[in-house]
Design a protein around this nucleic acid. Structure first.
Lengths: 191, 191
DNA sequence: CACTAAATAGACCGATTGGTATAATCGTGT
DNA sequence: ACACGATTATACCAATCGGTCTATTTAGTG
């Protein structure tokens, strides 16, 4: 049910990820999704902004779930986190450096120029941050320390994705993966 | 001399920083710089791409110099790095979250869609990375370890800027600043 | 002062943008 | 079979996009 709407949303998510908000035109969304223009405005009467905001929200939920799943494999957190980031490196590489950091470009473009999308990005980042924090909490860190480290981990991964996509190489992300493992091991020792 | 060309370049740098490549129109560059359309194409006959590429290159050089200066204040590297990142947090805040991460948005938008700008971003990141690596080298780390950590540090700062601009708060960057200080202190102990 | 190249000024272009309007079609309950 | 709302399909719109063109002004040199 609602496959047209779904196709539009999926196409928008991946186009925003690759090209950002302003780099993605409605015509491109239409041709990628296969849906006609009329359907787009029927399902998303608030136009490009509304569509993008919903795409960002969906991306946030999806990504948060991936974090929760990816870090809950049973392995100790340091190794799980390293594996998680290395898995992102694989995905970025296999996409031809088109995917990765599904929020980054939009977040930067719209931080001060589009309140609605800025709010959407903030909510999405909140979800990711809480997902990381929950695992850090379970790892034994205090709530405050978990929140602090969650922010840091998110920053490192975001940054790693930017560098990997720019350099067309998974190596920056893999460096991030190794450092994060080290960091968490040390964090546990200091407790 | 050449102040018109200079004005255009300066305006382009700051507009790209705030809005990214596709979000920045030539009309906006013209009105911000005060230069007429004809002058833009006289000084930058290769159009928007050429202008943006040069703006990115200049931003890279400028930012690399800031790293070299900022970390060479005489303080021990861990504290200097922390101060450097906290200084960025101040700048981001004082700009109303319009500035910071002058390459990020363009790098993400163009990683796979514009070879010329992708190359420009890569060169710019190279400059930054080498600036960090030089200081880490002087701090006593091996060349390989310095390069590895330089990548990681860049990633954390890039990520911190994204989060700070999105959240309209310097706090994420300040968390990054504290973690990086810790990291470098530990790194020295382990030597 | 005259000549010329550098630079500015802005009118103009086709293409594309996000968005609207309306007609045709589909799907379902009676 | 029919009606009716849900949905799709397209033609169309003003505004803006990046880019071109040429006329004019400015600055330097003989």
């Amino acid at each position: 049910m609602n496959t047209t709407r779904e196709q539009i949303l999926i196409a928008t998510c991946s186009l925003l990820e690759e090209q950002g908000f302003h780099g993605t035109g409605l015509n491109q969304i239409i041709s990628t999704s296969g849906a006609p223009r009329g359907s787009l405005y029927y399902h998303f009467p608030e136009g490009k902004d509304g569509l993008a905001a919903e795409a960002i929200a969906r991306t946030g939920e999806l990504t948060a779930q991936r974090i929760i799943d990816g870090l809950g494999s049973g392995a100790p957190l340091p190794q799980a986190l390293r594996g998680f980031v290395e898995h992102i490196a694989d995905l970025v590489e296999r996409s031809g450096f088109r995917a990765g950091g599904p929020l980054t470009a939009v977040a930067m473009e719209t931080a001060t120029t589009n309140e609605r999308l800025n709010a959407a990005c903030r909510s999405a980042f909140d979800l990711l941050e809480r997902a990381f924090a929950a695992h850090l909490d379970a790892y034994g860190l205090s709530g405050e320390r978990a929140a602090e480290l969650a922010t840091f981990i998110m920053a490192t991964i975001e940054g790693g994705i930017i560098l990997s996509r720019t350099y067309h190489s998974g190596e920056p992300l893999r460096r991030v993966a190794r450092e994060l493992e080290r960091l968490l091991v040390i964090e546990a020792l200091e407790q």
